Simulated scan of single mutants.
Amino acid sequence: MLISATKRTSALPKLHHIQLLDFYKGKILEFPFADLVKLRHMFCRPNLKFRNLGRLISLQTLPSCFTVSNEQGYEVKQLRDVNKLRGRLDIYGLENVKSKEEALEANLAAKERLTELCLVWFGDDDTRCSPEVEAEVLAGLCPPVGIQKLVIHGYRGSRYPDWMVGKQSGGPDGLRNLQLQRCSQLGPGPQFEAFPHLRVLYIWCCSWDSLPGNMEHLTLLENLNIVGCKNIRCLPALPQSIEWFSLTSCNDELMESCKTAGHPNWQKIEHIPRKRFRQ
């Protein structure tokens, strides 16, 4: 059964067998129908908020991001039993998750039909946990094994979890696309031992002073994009498989050396057939 937002919404809670709702043309800002346990699909605007999402145990598509907050009904544990989700899941507001135990309540590993996952931290230092706690939170957010694309935005943890950097981690070892955005850690970027099948790596405005030293072992990597990383001055050895290399708004020294014939950085990308440099 399909119900449009043009119908009277006051009648919806009585229709327990609804499987699809279309709110795209509606003006509601919060989803008020958490008792529709048969609901599988929704179409809505991106800013729709979901209170008590955990009751929608049949839900397969979540067209808007789920934003975690300290308000009742928006805790990360609301995701625990919504395990039929498929496609992409965006989780915002992870600065409001305060421990690994709390993160584990999201039960992400059980969402086996997901293909893309986006984990987002926002907020300033006054609203964030310590780097040590934030590292524990990311450790508890291990994605399902079959995930193909992973985006991590705004992470400030002190380290990366075993499911990202360990050879036998229990995480998404078939990952094809990894995007790390505004990740702030001292020292080099994380080793990607857990992702041997990686084909696309996008690094945007991260504070590392160097790229991971093991990148030569990513023998299936085809596309490497580095944007706005001002502290990186040299490249590690890169795999022969790379077909596209893009360097945008990075450290001036790195940008210039990659275009200077004979420089060690130039030598490390000489084999790549397609390259782009933008200041």
Rank of each mutant, 00 (worst) to 15 (best):
R8W: 12
S10M: 05
A11Q: 10
I18G: 09
L20C: 12
L20M: 14
P32H: 07
A34Y: 15
V37C: 15
L39T: 00
H41K: 06
H41C: 01
M42W: 07
F43T: 08
N47D: 13
N47G: 00
L48V: 14
S58P: 01
L59K: 01
Q60R: 15
L62F: 10
P63A: 09
S64D: 02
F66T: 06
E71Q: 04
E71M: 04
V76R: 09
R80T: 09
V82I: 12
I91A: 02
E95S: 05
E95H: 10
E95I: 07
V97L: 02
K100D: 08
E101N: 14
E101M: 11
L104Q: 07
E105V: 02
E112Y: 10
E116D: 14
C118M: 10
L119S: 13
W121H: 12
G123D: 12
D124G: 15
D126E: 14
R128I: 08
C129K: 12
S130F: 11
E132I: 12
V137L: 01
L138N: 01
G140E: 03
P143H: 05
V145S: 09
V145I: 11
I147Y: 07
H153V: 09
G154I: 07
R156F: 02
G157D: 06
S158K: 04
P161R: 05
M164N: 08
Q168W: 05
Q168D: 14
G170S: 07
D173K: 08
D173S: 15
L175R: 14
R182S: 12
Q185A: 14
Q185N: 13
P190G: 08
A194Q: 07
L201E: 11
L201Y: 06
Y202S: 05
C205K: 01
C206Q: 00
W208V: 01
S210A: 15
S210P: 13
N214P: 05
M215P: 07
L218E: 05
L224Y: 09
V227E: 00
I232D: 00
C234H: 07
L238Y: 00
T248Q: 03
E256Q: 13
S257H: 03
C258Y: 08
T260G: 06
T260W: 06
H263T: 09
N265C: 12
Q267A: 13
K268R: 14
H271Q: 09
H271S: 07
I272V: 15
F277A: 04
R278K: 06
Q279N: 11
